[in-house]
């Protein structure tokens, strides 16, 4: 019961972050998804769908050359998007994660919270629990979308981007946590 109450209190305090951050992630995920759909269509049009299952490091270089050979690609600046995809979690951590933690400690507000009916342990669970959950869920959705996008984008992006099929999953929550630190 008290965990729910703490959650309500936390929700009330951080309501903008709680709505805004997942929203941003979801929008980004949607954008990547849409872009990816367009790219896959382009691939199938050029009979390059087989490239999807390969990956940039081991796959045939013919995917690479085919991609580069075709005049235009649907996405104009894959490198920029790649950087943005990487940066978004870090930015989210900075702009949303920092307020989440900072508000409780730097203002000393925890000295209020800890003396109320619900104590420190429930406060941690109730405040950070749902926020972490939200961050994880957003990260998962975002990571999946990024991975899906990367399957095509890897052929267009510069070779300097290392294999980050998995990294989006782990990176996103790590970045959110790293932001406040």
């Amino acid at each position: 019961m008290s965990v729910l109450r703490m959650t309500r209190a936390a929700w009330y305090k951080h309501r903008f972050s709680v709505v805004g951050v997942p929203a941003v992630f979801l929008l980004a995920a949607l954008a990547l998804f849409a872009d990816s759909v367009v790219q896959r269509h382009w691939l199938s049009v050029h009979h390059l769908s087989g490239c999807l299952v390969a990956n940039a490091t081991t796959g045939g270089s013919w995917c690479h050359s085919a991609a580069w050979a075709s005049l235009s690609s649907p996405t104009q600046t894959p490198n920029v998007i790649a950087v943005a995809v990487l940066a978004l979690p870090v930015l989210a951590g900075l702009f949303a994660g920092v307020p989440w933690v900072a508000r409780e400690f730097e203002s000393g507000a925890f000295r209020f919270t800890w003396t109320q009916g619900t104590g420190p342990r429930l406060w941690l669970l109730g405040t950070f629990g749902p926020l972490v959950l939200l961050a994880a869920v957003s990260a998962a959705i975002y990571g999946a979308a990024a991975y899906w996008w990367y399957q095509v984008a890897q052929w267009q992006a510069g070779t300097s981007i290392w294999s980050w099929r998995w990294s989006s999953f782990e990176l996103t929550p790590l970045s959110i946590a790293a932001g406040p630190c």
């Binding site: 009330y12 305090k13 508000r103 203002s107 507000a109 925890f110 000295r111 209020f112 003396t115």
Partner: peptide
């Protein structure tokens, strides 16, 4: 009530 008057100042 602590000396620092702890409150949620953004609310």
């Amino acid at each position: 009530m602590d000396q620092t008057v702890p409150l949620y100042r953004h609310l």
